[in-house]
Design a protein around this nucleic acid. Structure first.
Lengths: 225, 225
DNA sequence: GATTTTTTTCAGAGTATTTTCAGATTGGTA
DNA sequence: TACCAATCTGAAAATACTCTGAAAAAAATC
């Protein structure tokens, strides 16, 4: 079980991150300032740290640097509001492992976390299953029996979302914010179009799984009993 | 099984080295200061030592000199932050076998380790295979059936990376940092260009292996079923 | 110092993905 | 049943990413 420490002072964002990560069956712990973050991180019991740059008490750069000085090598993903190269360089110089500018699409964050933890040699979930479908998380492919198809980036993220919340209805809204991000101006029809793409691929694969529509709400995967 | 001792106080670098080496199926052990490094090295149970010059307690020069005085001939690869010839000369004078300045590309380190251990007469992995392709690690050549071609340094390192992680998608980003190094400003297109070179050579060799592209992610080798 | 090889750069062609749109379809409900 | 709103879907358009040949630049070799 992957343990993730989130150090983020914007409560709403912190909560959101916590939720996204918990949904992945990872364990998340949230703290709201740099000082506390550093204390928690020092325990060395985390597999990953998500660290905002702008923080009360101590900023993200300081925290990573301190950690590295103390020989704590837990991988750190830095979050920053600005898209300045200097920040990126500075972050990596301080010893961060990856870097992401806000706002971002949650699914992209997850992709990066997976990459980081794989790099670290941690055991990461490599495959999701639902009914007769298998989604290969490292190859971006979907298979059913012997057939297999490649999925594009968005097809993949959407399906991954559905498959990691089996039986749950995934609201169209959530899909939009999680795959397209909060800043995007994509509309409902974009999601609908992708559902159509996915259904086509399910059909091609000969899968028994279907994507059920819940009018005015969203979608969910359904396997025949 | 090759045993490698890493003496490096920058935790991140040490971890990275450990990982890179372990991925090669070598055995890595990491210590963080010169004194401990010397103690470990004295055991004589290592096939190779990677030794930073700037170290707490005892610097790298002292460590090698001590070792040689004690007739311990384990090959030493010195790492230094500066690119000063004087350091290089001094290092080799102390009895080091090779010398490398930080930062460096991980694949270059591996190349040097291979060279050192071959020089030493150790048994090293000499060949990688995938499908009908054989990559000769000491001759930098690639063969398929009876035909064979020479590969340039970068072609070689990239292909080695792909062949040592069969079936896995190797992110473009990883290829860049591992072959070009973290300090380089090479861009995605550089990788793309090399993929094109490699494909051309595969074709020339008449190999059935192809390089598959995973859009927005990276590449992987594919052998026909 | 000239030649060869390797590496980088660039631009246009080629492809896959993503968005957009409009007509067809569906489900709910008045 | 007839209507409306929501959804589906095929096709086209727009965009983003990748490939590749050629040439320039850099490095290695002779």
């Amino acid at each position: 079980m992957l343990r993730v420490l989130i150090v983020e002072d914007e409560v709403r964002l912190a909560e959101a991150l916590g939720q996204i990560i918990t949904e992945q069956k990872y364990q998340a712990e949230v703290v709201y300032d740099g000082e506390t973050g550093l204390d928690y991180a020092r325990s060395g019991q985390y597999d990953l740290i998500i660290l905002d740059v702008m923080l009360p008490k101590r900023n993200g750069f300081e925290v990573v640097r301190k950690l590295r000085e103390e020989k704590i090598a837990t991988p750190v993903l830095l979050l920053t509001a600005r898209d300045e190269v200097s920040d990126k360089v500075r972050g990596l110089d301080c010893g961060a492992d990856d870097y992401m500018t806000k706002p971002f699409a949650p699914e992209e964050l997850l992709a990066r976390l997976r990459a980081l933890s794989r790099r670290q040699g941690d055991v990461v979930l490599e495959e999701l299953t639902f009914g007769d479908l298998k989604l290969n998380l490292s190859a971006y492919s979907l298979s059913c029996g012997t057939r297999s198809v490649h999925l594009g980036y968005k097809e993949f993220e959407i399906l991954r979302l559905l498959m990691s919340n089996p039986q749950m209805v995934m609201p169209k809204e959530s899909i939009l914010t999680r795959v397209w991000g909060t800043e995007s101006d994509a509309e409902d029809n974009n999601v609908e179009a992708y559902m159509s793409f996915l259904r086509k691929k399910f059909h091609y694969l000969g899968s028994k799984v279907t994507i059920g529509t819940v009018r005015k709400v969203g979608y969910r995967l359904e396997a025949p009993l």
